[in-house]
Design a protein around this nucleic acid. Structure first.
Length: 229
DNA sequence: AAGCAGACCAACCGCAACATC
DNA sequence: AGATGTTGCGGTTGGTCTGCT
């Protein structure tokens, strides 16, 4: 029987105090990320490694953007969700400074409702009946630049992170007879990742590269475009 | 001002993938 | 090859905030 990730009796739970945050920040500043299991003890924290990792990734990391989502970020989330389903980490990976948790929360609290209001089923990005077949998604107003016409079955989230997942998921969208492919125009504009690509990012790119069966990732001077093939 | 409901968000939990022995 | 340990992900929960009555 596997041991639990931490001895629950000896660990704090709930909200983090400022002192705890500072300890974690100080520790990671000196030792860097990695080996989360040993972090709590080494940093003098009564937390489990998992909790430390989450706190760092979702809240303490210096490169986090925080604050409201911009309209183009909203657009991007909607587009990526239509494409990838609830793969929050993948989606967040395309939004610099945003975390999967943040994206997930934002989706659940804002975007889902927004889509519903627009007559779109957020679970599959299909238009509900009685509405025009092609609807332009462009944030809260129709004047914003990017446009998406999504009428495709979303990719059902899968637990497995297997290399073929993304391909099969995206592919399932494409292969779904109900999809109206001609309507697809996913011009997903992204910002280029920072010059020094962290390990996680690097791994993400490996994953992304597996999608290229269906998607082409091209880089323009100021943006990266994901295009359906 | 008090009570309530809904929205928001940080954090936890369980599971699966991956790594190591 | 199988068991065990670690990490990462997505779903969910629960506390806090905010607006309304």
């Amino acid at each position: 029987m596997r041991k639990p990730c931490c001895d629950k009796q000896d660990t704090n739970k709930g909200a983090w105090s400022k002192q705890e945050d500072q300890k974690l920040i100080d520790y990671i500043r000196i030792h860097g990320e990695g080996c989360w299991r040993s972090v709590p003890q080494a940093a003098g924290l009564l937390r489990c490694g998992k909790s430390c990792r989450l706190r760092w990734i979702n809240y303490l990391r210096p490169d986090l953007k925080r604050g409201n989502f911009a309209e183009d970020e909203e657009d991007l989330i909607i587009k990526l969700h239509a494409l990838l389903g609830n793969r929050w980490s993948l989606i967040a990976g395309r939004l610099p400074g945003r975390t999967d948790n943040e994206v997930k929360n934002y989706w659940n609290s804002h975007l889902r409702r927004k889509l519903i209001k627009m007559g779109i089923d957020p679970s599959n990005h299909r238009l509900n009946q009685k509405l025009p077949r092609t609807l332009i998604l462009s944030g809260s107003d129709t004047s914003s630049g990017s446009k998406t016409q999504v009428a495709c079955q979303p990719c059902k989230p899968k637990k497995s992170q297997g290399d073929n997942d993304q391909v099969s998921d995206a592919g399932s969208c494409l292969e779904d007879g109900a999809c109206t492919l001609p309507d697809l125009n996913l011009d997903l504009a992204m910002s280029i990742p920072p010059p020094s690509i962290p390990v996680v990012e690097e791994r993400q790119q490996c994953i992304d590269s597996n999608i290229t069966g269906e998607l082409e990732i091209s880089t323009a001077p100021s943006s990266t475009l994901l295009l359906f093939r």
